[in-house]
Computed example of a mutant assay.
Amino acid sequence: MTGVRRRYVDTRLGQMHLAECGSGTPVLFLHQTPRSWTEYIRVLPIAGGSVHAMAMDTLGFGQSARTGEFSIERFADGVEALLDALGLSRVALVGHHTGAVIALEVAARDPSRLSALVLSAMPHVTPGRRERVRDLPQVDHVRPAADGAHVTELWRQRRAFYDAGQEDDLTRFVIDALQVVDRLQDGHAAVGAYGMASRLPLVRTRTLLLCGAQDAYSLPDQPALARALGCELQVIDGAGVCLPEQRPDAFAEAVMSFVTQPRV
């Protein structure tokens, strides 16, 4: 965490927790469900060498305020509230999984606010997808147990997503999940309920799609999203669902190369 600073920012929706590193072009990173800014704990020091890299805790997650229902629209309200409080009229926005869906909603609302948009492993939310996942086991579902067995269950459920030697990353996941253990499903449900089809055509921001080569959940969706957004897709080897943690170097390099391109 060399050079990473952490602080709370007062916004119209309550306090938001923010980690940041570096200076220059502002770039805001949005995490997946049920994570916090620590998903980017290795990315921030790398990105901070080129830009003002910031990672927020999404409204309702981590150390940010818990107000209102969980929905993509509400999470996007939180992003806008933070940017307003920071006095940032224009930023590059980077999101991973749920964070990418939130970033898409921000871009659809006001393209002029974003200098660049990076959507990492964003699911393509369609009626067909809702049908496919309807009867699947709930993601990250645990019931708090008197003997603490739910902590081990969270570890067990996510173990396959992390490589051997990534136990520190998996520990951070469990910590993040326990902070919203009463609402673990709500973030995932918000993605499934999002009306993405009507929002994709509204995106006018220069966009890049990223995805880990081993991300079996999101990789199949990327070609259709690339066509819908008219943008490039970069697939990063050696990573799956946990791309920013498994390949922070390649992830940061792809993001920095894109967001620092001169505007034409």
Score class of each variant (00 low, 15 high):
1 M>T: 11
3 G>A: 02
4 V>F: 01
6 R>T: 13
12 R>V: 14
18 L>H: 07
18 L>N: 03
20 E>W: 01
21 C>P: 03
26 P>K: 03
27 V>Q: 10
31 H>N: 07
32 Q>R: 13
33 T>M: 02
37 W>C: 02
37 W>Q: 07
42 R>K: 13
44 L>S: 01
44 L>I: 01
50 S>Q: 14
53 A>Q: 09
56 M>V: 14
57 D>S: 01
58 T>R: 10
64 S>L: 03
68 G>A: 05
69 E>A: 15
72 I>T: 10
78 G>S: 01
78 G>Q: 09
78 G>R: 09
84 D>W: 05
90 R>Q: 13
90 R>T: 11
91 V>A: 10
92 A>E: 04
95 G>I: 06
96 H>V: 03
97 H>Y: 09
100 A>H: 08
105 E>R: 13
106 V>E: 11
112 S>H: 14
113 R>M: 11
119 L>R: 11
122 M>N: 07
128 G>M: 05
129 R>S: 08
134 R>N: 04
137 P>D: 01
139 V>N: 10
140 D>R: 04
141 H>T: 11
141 H>C: 13
148 G>I: 10
148 G>Q: 01
150 H>Q: 08
157 Q>T: 11
157 Q>S: 11
158 R>A: 15
161 F>V: 15
167 E>V: 04
179 Q>D: 14
189 A>Y: 10
192 G>E: 15
193 A>T: 00
196 M>L: 07
202 L>G: 00
204 R>P: 09
210 L>G: 02
214 Q>C: 12
216 A>M: 12
220 P>W: 08
221 D>Y: 10
225 L>D: 11
225 L>C: 03
228 A>C: 10
228 A>R: 14
230 G>R: 10
232 E>P: 00
233 L>N: 04
237 D>S: 15
238 G>M: 11
239 A>Y: 09
241 V>R: 14
247 R>A: 14
251 F>A: 05
251 F>K: 09
258 F>M: 07
262 P>D: 14
263 R>W: 13
